[in-house]
């Protein structure tokens, strides 16, 4: 009995002493798209031996912002990853909770590929064709109707006469967000937009609505699973980050968009039309409190990680053009904060 008591006491003491200590490990939350890159940097950083390996939680961009903006102090995360820039609403939330100084770092670019099995014939689409294949409602002869297209050739004679079958990411995913703004928003025809506006609806939101009649199938957040499904079914298409194409190029290949195949260079200068920048945001108030934050920023922005020959390019990150890189590097070394109002 005595022994058990001692063990219990020791256990309780251990818990209380260590909670009282300040945090000595960087905490990162945020986007699942940036997660694979941030984890690689964190691991290298930890192996450097001077600091503990940062803990990275994949919460999605929105969830990360909410945690990040919740306040200053070691109970809150130091860094949040984002697959889009911080929104003004989120800035307001940050300001309200006393998170006033935020450093914005652009990590690099990410392209979204529209891919299918290597067994299928090469394909090429325009954004409007993709919108027509996916939208809930399309305009035909100046009227909005429920999407009638069953085969690709129904949209355009030049496209193959095969059933439309697209695996889509769920609405919570950042990839879907980016797809909505870059493809559904841009591919939406002027006629459709004006028709929506005439009805007093927001065109942007309505254009992004996807059909629910079985031609666009929601396939879950798990991109690896989408890749496996595409490999098994040559007539299906799916969209996901460029890194998944790089890692699985023996199974899947990308369709061209406006005649452009995704490539490092194309995503870097945005000539590949579905590309977006990736970010992370740092709480300046935590630098100096939690050890290693600035060193981590330096490691992340160093040439050997996000430079054009850096290790992040091996797993599919598209590096910044050199002039942009310089601004980002200065932001990391001088800790230039962004305007919050």
């Amino acid at each position: 009995m005595k022994k058990i008591k001692i063990i219990l006491l020791a256990f309780a003491a251990m818990i209380f002493t260590s909670t009282a200590q300040a945090r000595d490990q960087i905490k990162i939350v945020g986007s699942s798209t940036v997660y694979p890159y941030a984890t690689v940097v964190a691991e290298k950083f930890g192996k450097g031996g001077k600091f503990k390996t940062p803990v990275i939680e994949s919460t999605g961009t929105g969830g990360g912002m909410k945690l990040f903006c919740a306040g200053v102090g070691t109970g809150h995360p130091d860094i949040t990853n984002a697959s889009r820039a911080i929104k003004s609403k989120e800035k307001a939330l940050c300001e309200k909770n006393g998170v006033k100084d935020i450093v914005e770092i652009v990590v690099g670019n990410d392209g979204i590929t529209f891919s299918h099995s290597v067994k299928a014939k090469d394909a090429n689409f325009t954004k409007e064709q993709l919108w027509r294949a996916l939208a809930a409602k399309v305009d035909i002869d100046g009227k909005l109707v429920e999407n009638p297209y069953k085969k690709w050739s129904d949209i355009d004679k030049g496209l193959p006469s095969e059933k439309i079958e697209i695996l889509i990411a769920p609405p919570t995913s950042g990839t879907r967000d980016a797809w909505n703004s870059l493809v559904m928003g841009k591919g939406c025809t002027k006629t459709a937009k004006s028709l929506y506006e005439a009805d007093g609806k927001k065109a942007k939101k309505e254009c992004a609505k996807m059909r629910e009649d079985g031609y666009a199938v929601e396939a879950g957040e798990n991109d690896t699973l989408i890749v496996q499904k595409l490999a098994a079914n040559p007539s299906a298409f799916g969209f996901f980050g460029y890194s998944y194409l790089v890692a699985n190029k023996d199974k899947i290949k990308a369709a061209g968009i406006n005649g452009v195949q995704p490539s490092l260079e194309g995503i870097q200068d945005y000539s590949y039309p579905i590309a977006r920048p990736l970010f992370f945001y740092v709480k300046k108030a935590h630098i100096g409190v939690v050890p290693g934050i600035q060193e981590f920023m330096k490691e992340f922005t160093s040439k050997k990680s996000m430079g054009s020959r850096g290790y992040l390019t091996d797993i599919g990150l598209v590096p910044l053009a050199s002039d942009k890189y310089k601004t980002v590097r200065t932001a990391a070394t001088d800790l230039t904060t962004i305007k919050i109002k």
Binding site: M14, I15, S18, T19, Q25, Y35, A38, T39, A42, E43, G46, K52, T53, V55, I56, E57, S58
Partner: peptide, 11 residues
């Protein structure tokens, strides 16, 4: 979370 270091206590 992505945790590389082995945890040494429940906290």
């Amino acid at each position: 979370a992505f945790v590389v270091d082995l945890p040494s206590s429940p906290v």
